[in-house]
Design a protein around this nucleic acid. Structure first.
Lengths: 364, 364
DNA sequence: CTGAAAGCGCTTACAG
DNA sequence: CTGAAAGCGCTTACAG
C-alpha cells in the first residue's frame, strides 16, 4: 500500500478526555491546564497526573470553544485591496509592521483581500466581522462614511491613510504634504524648473496633498505653475510607465522635463524604465524622484531619491492602537477609551542618486 | 464632549434575539438564515419576518459557535520564517498565490511567522493547531522529521519546498536542478568560463541542487570545477552583497569572474550593488544571473537573467491541495485520500540584460 | 481541594 | 411547517 494512504487522524483530545485519563473532572483539568488564575487550588499530586495525561494525549485547548466563551479570538483582521493579485510595496511594508507587532502580542493576523473598496468591501467585509477577528485594520481604505460607521457599530478598527476622518476611529497618517513640499523644494534647489508630476489616483487624499504641495513649492520658489506638467496617473509601476510613455509621445517636440516627481516609488520605477528605453539617462538627462521609500527605492538603479514614510512603524502602531481599544472594551464594559483619533507620522527626505543638479546647457 | 468618547458597542445579535424579534424560535431563524439545506421547511411568511428581523438587528452568525460544531474554521494557516522582520520576495510571491486561491474558495488566511525552524516552530506551531485553522501550509520548512510527523498526527498540511519528504504529505517543489543546469549552460554558451557561484543557505536541499547542477553543467561543457569559485552565502540581498565584497577583498589579484551565478535574485541584487560600487559594469565587465524571477528581477537595473520558478502558481496549488485534503477528511471520515505526495513544477530560463556574451580581450 | 451545573451561540436530530 | 432537547469544548460561578 502506498505511503499516501494513511490512517485517519485521531479526534483531538478534549478536557473531558484528559480528565478521564487522570481520574479527575474536566474542570479540574481546565483549572490546571488553561486558567492560570485558579490553578493553585489543585493539589500538586493531582496536578502532576493531569499534566502527564495532557502530555500523553497531546491535548491542545480548542480555540473555537474558548473564543465562544471569551468573545475573543486573539486575531486581528487586515483588510486591503489588491489590484490584480499584485501586492504592492506599500502594503508589504505596512504588513510587515503589522506582523511584527501582532506576533509580539501573541495575536494572529488574518488577511482579507478585496477587489475594490466601493463594492466588494461593503458587500463582504461585514460577513467577516462574525467573531473570527477581534478587530480590523483597514489599509488605505476608500469607503463611504456610512459603511465605515456601520462597521464601527459592531467591530473596533483602526485605519491607515484613511481618506475620511471618522469620529472616534483612530487613523494613522503621515505628513505627506510636508514631505512632498520638501521634496519639490529639493528638486528646485538642484536647479530644476520644469518639473513633471505624475499623480497618484486622483480623488485620494494623499494624491491631492502631493499635488497641493507641488504647487505650493513652485509658488514659494516663484515658478509659474503649468497645469500641463501635472499628469494623472495611479499608484503602480505599469501605470507610471504608461503615463510617462504617453507623455513622451504627446510631447515629441517639447524638451524633456528637468525632473519628474512621482507620487510613489512604484510610479518612479515605471518612469525610469521608460526613460531608459527611450535612451535617456537618469539623472544625467532628467532627475526622477519617488515617494514612500519602499523596498524598490533601494533596489532601483540608480537608487531613488524619495520621501520616507515610516510605513512599517505605522503598521506596528496600528496593531498597538487596535489592541488598546479591544482591551479597553473587554475590561471596563462601560465605554470607549478616549483615544487620539489621528496619529500623524513625520516624513523624511531621502536623497539618493536618481536626482542630480541640473547640469545641461540651455535653460527654458 | 469630544467625538472620541463614544457609547458602548452593542452586543452582537444572536439567533435567539432574531427569533424573539420575529416571534419564532432560534432554530427557525437558524434554518432560514444559516443552513441552506433545511431552509425550505419554513413558510414564506415566517421566512420574511425572520429575514427582516435579522436585517434590523444586523445579525451576523458567530464564527466561533459554528466552528465549534462544524470543526471547521474556513481558515488556512501559513507558517513561514521571517528573518529580522523582513519578508523576502520568495515568500511574497508564494503568499500572493495563496491569498488568491484562498479568496476564491472563501477561505481566510492567517499568517504565523517564526524566527527559526529549529526551535521556534516546534515550540509554538503546535499551539496554533487548536482549531483556529483547518490546515497549514509550511513555506520552505526546515524541520526535523519527528516534528513534521507529530504535526501530521493532528493537522493536515502541505509543504512548499520542503527539504524532507514526509510520506503522505503533499510537497510542492520545482525542478530547480534542471533550471540551474539550463542557466549555467546558458552562461557557458555566452562564452563564460570562470563562473562564480554564490550559494544559498548550505544544507538546504534547494541550495545543494543548484550547486550540483552548477558542477554538472561545467562538467558537461568540459570546464574544470574550481571549488574556490563556489562561495557559501545565504538567500538575502545583504548576504549576497557581503559575500561578493568579501570575495573581491580576498582575491585582489585575481581577475574578475566572467559571470556570477547567484542562488536567488536577492543575492544577485546585492552582488550588483557591490559590483557597481567597485566601479564594474554589469554586464559589460561581468554577467550576473539570479534565480526565482521574483519581483526584484524586473526592477533591478539591468534587469536580471534568472530562472523562473512559478511561485505564485505554487502558492495557489498549495491551497488547492490542502483544501482537497481537508474536505476529504470532513466528508468520508474513514481515511485519507490517496494524494500525490510530490508535485514538481517546471522552471524556465528568463534571459534578460544582466547577462551578455563575453566580449573582453584576454582569456584565462 | 474538588465536582455538578449552567451557559457561550449555534446546529442536528427528533417530536409533534 | 415549527419547537424542545441535546451537545460541540470550554470556563465561571456555586456547592460541598
Amino acid at each position: 500500500m502506498p505511503a499516501s494512504v494513511r490512517k485517519k487522524r485521531a479526534r483531538a483530545a478534549t478536557l473531558a478526555d484528559v480528565g478521564r485519563a487522570a481520574g479527575v473532572s474536566a474542570m479540574a483539568a481546565s483549572a490546571v491546564l488553561n486558567s492560570a488564575r485558579t490553578s493553585s487550588r489543585i493539589s500538586p499530586d493531582t496536578r502532576a497526573r493531569i499534566v502527564a495525561a495532557a502530555q500523553l494525549l497531546n491535548y491542545r485547548p480548542n480555540a473555537a470553544a474558548r473564543a465562544l466563551l471569551a468573545r475573543r479570538m486573539n486575531t486581528i483582521g487586515v483588510a486591503a485591496v489588491v489590484d490584480a493579485g499584485e501586492l504592492n510595496t506599500y502594503f508589504l511594508e505596512v504588513f510587515n509592521g503589522l506582523l511584527e507587532a501582532a506576533a509580539q502580542h501573541e495575536q494572529n493576523t488574518t488577511v482579507f483581500t478585496f477587489h475594490d473598496w466601493t463594492h466588494d468591501v461593503p458587500a463582504r467585509l461585514p460577513r467577516f466581522c462574525d467573531g473570527r477577528v477581534d478587530g480590523l485594520i483597514l489599509i488605505a481604505p476608500l469607503v463611504a462614511m456610512d459603511v465605515l460607521r456601520k462597521i464601527a457599530g459592531h467591530t473596533p478598527y483602526v485605519t491607515i491613510h484613511n481618506d475620511l476622518a471618522v469620529p472616534g476611529v483612530v487613523n494613522l497618517e503621515s505628513d505627506e504634504e510636508a514631505g512632498a513640499f520638501t521634496l519639490v523644494t529639493h528638486l528646485i534647489a538642484q536647479g530644476h524648473r520644469r518639473i513633471l508630476h505624475l499623480t497618484g489616483n486622483r480623488g485620494r487624499r494623499g494624491s491631492e496633498r502631493r499635488i497641493a504641495a507641488y504647487r505650493r513649492a513652485l509658488e514659494a520658489a516663484g515658478i509659474v505653475y503649468d497645469p500641463a506638467l501635472v499628469v494623472d496617473s495611479s499608484y503602480s509601476t505599469p501605470a507610471g510607465a504608461q503615463s510617462m510613455r504617453t507623455w513622451l509621445q504627446q510631447n515629441p517636440a517639447a524638451p524633456l522635463p528637468d525632473a519628474v516627481f512621482c507620487a510613489n516609488d512604484g510610479i518612479a520605477v515605471g518612469v525610469m524604465e521608460v526613460l531608459a528605453e527611450a535612451g535617456y539617462s537618469v539623472p544625467g538627462d532628467v532627475s526622477v524622484a519617488g515617494f514612500d521609500d519602499s523596498l524598490v527605492a533601494r533596489t532601483a538603479s540608480p537608487q531613488l531619491t524619495t520621501v520616507r514614510q515610516p510605513l512599517r512603524a505605522m503598521g506596528r502602531q496600528a496593531v498597538e492602537s487596535l489592541l488598546l481599544q479591544i482591551r479597553a472594551e473587554h475590561e471596563h464594559d462601560s465605554g470607549m477609551p478616549a483615544t487620539q483619533t489621528a496619529i500623524v507620522f513625520p516624513t523624511e527626505l531621502i536623497a539618493r542618486a536618481s536626482v542630480a543638479p541640473r547640469a545641461r546647457a540651455a535653460a527654458t
